[in-house]
């Protein structure tokens, strides 16, 4: 008899909790996956594809689905750290297979050599190159993300990746890097 009561009690409890859980599952359903947005916000948006995905957002989706967080050379260490924080993972060094975190660069078109083929325009993921067919092109360096996707398509090889010049306002207190003039 007592066994019956025990079973009954357990069964009732199970039913009750089941109902609560079921209600909660409907009531507190998460609509979208904001994680991808958050990851995408961290990625540098160079759209360079070095991670092996066509763009930053696909990579963000891949990370959300469990891909490694160390595949973004343009973002470098700080991006990996932020991703690690967000994902609750341990930060790891950049995966060299995807390239290395170089100095920041922008594309520069040697304009006298440009033949106006528009191939770079089509290659640029952020529309940072202006020009028309048979007109020489130029890079809006403000908009250039330095992804170097325009370099390969150029048939005349007139695009260079130029390191961004340090100015007094973008200087980051690298005291040990100051060239010191010798005085005699």
């Amino acid at each position: 008899m007592s066994l019956l009561y025990a079973l009954l009690a357990i069964g009732l409890l199970a039913l009750l909790f089941g109902l609560i859980l079921g209600y909660a599952a409907v009531r507190f359903k998460v609509e979208s996956d904001p994680l991808v947005e958050q990851i995408d916000a961290i990625l540098p948006q160079t759209q360079c594809g070095q991670c092996g995905y066509p763009g930053c957002r696909p990579y963000a989706e891949a990370i959300a689905n469990g891909d490694e967080i160390n595949k973004c050379p343009p973002g470098g260490e700080s991006t990996i750290r932020q991703l690690a924080d967000l994902m609750g993972l341990e930060a790891k060094p950049l995966d060299d297979a995807h390239g290395s975190n170089d100095v920041k660069k922008v594309a520069f078109i040697r304009e006298d050599e440009c033949i106006g083929c528009t191939k770079c325009i089509q290659a640029c993921p952020v529309d940072a190159i202006v020009g028309a067919s048979k007109q020489m092109h130029t890079v809006i360096s403000e908009e250039c993300t330095g992804c170097d996707l325009c370099v390969d398509p150029c048939p005349v090889d007139c695009i260079d990746m130029v390191p961004v010049k340090v100015t007094a306002s973008s200087w980051r207190w690298q005291l040990d890097a100051i060239p010191v003039k010798t005085i005699d």
Partner: peptide
């Protein structure tokens, strides 16, 4: 001889 650079 070169100038020594240091932070304040």
């Amino acid at each position: 001889m070169s100038l020594r650079i240091a932070s304040s």
